[in-house]
Nucleic acid binder design. Structure first.
Lengths: 120, 120
DNA sequence: CTGACATATTCCTATATCGGTATATAGCTT
DNA sequence: AAGCTATATACCGATATAGGAATATGTCAG
């Protein structure tokens, strides 16, 4: 068995840096393919191919406008990644330090050690 | 050129679902390889191989304990993913609805249209 | 209708992957 | 030392990839 298809899910689609760059470029609105080609400095066929992958996982939507196709981001598709990674946020974020302290205290109280300040 | 190595960065390493499962299993503390094998229902060599990839991108650390190796998660490695995806959160989260409304109002005021309710 | 423009698709090739199986390495235990 | 346990590594095969180049499809202008 080989590696999962890039179109298997958003995690795989977004593992490719240039596809992330495309999503970044689409962050503030619709853009045509040529627009993206210019913005990213990639060859047109590669951009089209990357867009196809992003389309297949639902990370972008297309709209036709004459001979151009305007791509727009579909944030919903990134939610699974967000939800997964946010679960680990406490492992590095200082925002949780206070919470950790509180939980420590609760734990000690639960053990009847109301005075606290015991060492591990 | 082929797809980027799974060890190229955390995005690639974590694109594989079983590697995410390993990280999930390590979320609440150190575990030995066999422990992970039992928890995930995978063959031991595959677990070792997945752990190697996670080690190479810095997503886990190892500690030797007799003949066992205890793996622990290193959350820092997930931060780039977190930081990237959080930038898109406003695309789906209701938490930003209120902010959007405020920004709309500000925009209208800036344009001198204090009465608001103009159509595009 | 012909040509220019915008985008998608096809073909090619090198490469890294993943699972499976077998085996190597290393640390206990008796 | 022998044997068992825990983990890592090597080998194999099938597969999907990504860039490059060429080409196909579709649309607008004159």
């Amino acid at each position: 068995m080989a590696r999962a298809a890039t179109t298997a899910d958003t995690f795989n689609a977004v593992a490719e840096p240039r596809r992330r760059a495309i999503l970044d470029a689409l962050a503030d609105g619709e853009r045509s393919v040529n627009d993206l080609v210019a913005a990213l400095g990639l060859a047109q066929p590669q951009v089209s191919k990357h867009l196809k992958v992003l389309r297949e996982v639902g990370a972008v939507d297309v709209r036709e406008d004459g001979r151009r196709r305007l791509y727009r981001i579909n944030g919903e598709a990134l939610k699974p990644i967000h939800d997964w990674v946010v679960g680990f946020e406490q492992l590095w974020s200082e925002r949780f330090d206070r919470l950790d302290a509180v939980l420590e205290d609760l734990k000690r109280e639960e053990q009847g050690d109301v005075a606290g300040d015991e060492q591990q």
